[in-house]
Design a protein around this nucleic acid. Structure first.
Lengths: 144, 144
DNA sequence: CTATTAAATGAGAATAATTCTCATTATTTA
DNA sequence: TAAATAATGAGAATTATTCTCATTTAATAG
């Protein structure tokens, strides 16, 4: 059962306002990472630019969304409603499309031990990781 | 034996100018990823800002440097003189330090097969990948 | 349900990073 | 060494994002 945008806001004790609802609805509908630019386009006339950025920062603070930057240098936003959803990103370098992917459990385990050995050699404490895969989506792979 | 900055430029058929030499020397000396900001600071008075950006773009075009963005949103530059130097990045979220790391051969092989299976499921062609490791360096890990 | 208080919004100004313009200077070529 | 070509420096322009502040909206107490 999907949480409503109102619930998301009230669960996190921040006030329920129209812009916040509109932005959340858009992200809930889109269901995958979206660029700030596309968000702006889709919400034009509904949410002021300054408000959009402020709302995004508010939602980041309560960990309802996360932000990342593509290899092509585009700022992307995605919902992160479920704390447990560890995933990675696959980027199409032609059209800029980004999709979420999960690695097999076995592979994530191998990655963990590789990370442990890197910690030993580097003297870093490693707290997080992300694998970026870069290529061409099914649409774009043929246009060459 | 290290290639000189002049050699790098002439090997790539672009003209040998002072700003290009100065930028290359700085990168050769620094020997690890450096932020554009730090580059600017280090070269203040020697290379105009507009020229610095232009030189960086020139060097990118001939694949002598590569650019990437940290999770903290800082643009980093690094030499990529040897086409074969496949590596990944380890980021310190406290001080922003970035170091290059290599994964074990065995692990890169496992990653390759994982990628093959992702290609099958996603219908993407995957041409490149990068693993980002995020944590705290030996200096910063204790300051908590 | 209404008044008060606190918080969020919208418009546009401010900032930061990067690119562009164009007159001047340096480099390459013949 | 001269002519042609390319690169530079200074600052203007652009883009993405943040900030300011007067107005509006939402939360809270009675």
């Amino acid at each position: 059962m999907e949480k409503s945008s109102r619930e998301i806001l009230s669960d996190n004790n921040i006030s329920i306002t129209n812009p916040r609802i509109i932005v959340l609805e858009q992200l809930l509908k889109y269901k995958k990472p979206i660029s700030v630019e596309d968000l702006q386009d889709n919400l034009r006339g509904q949410v002021a630019t300054s408000t959009l950025y402020r709302v995004l920062n508010d939602l980041k603070k309560i960990n309802v969304i996360s932000e990342f930057i593509t290899p092509g240098n585009t700022t992307m936003i995605e919902l992160s409603l479920h704390e447990d959803e560890h995933h990675h990103h696959l980027f199409c370098k032609s059209c800029g499309d980004v999709i979420d992917i999960e690695l097999s459990l076995g592979f994530e385990q191998k990655l963990s031990s590789e990370i442990k050995s890197i910690e030993k050699n580097s003297f870093f404490i490693i707290e997080d990781h992300g694998l970026e895969l870069i290529g061409r989506c099914s649409e774009c792979r043929d246009s060459f």
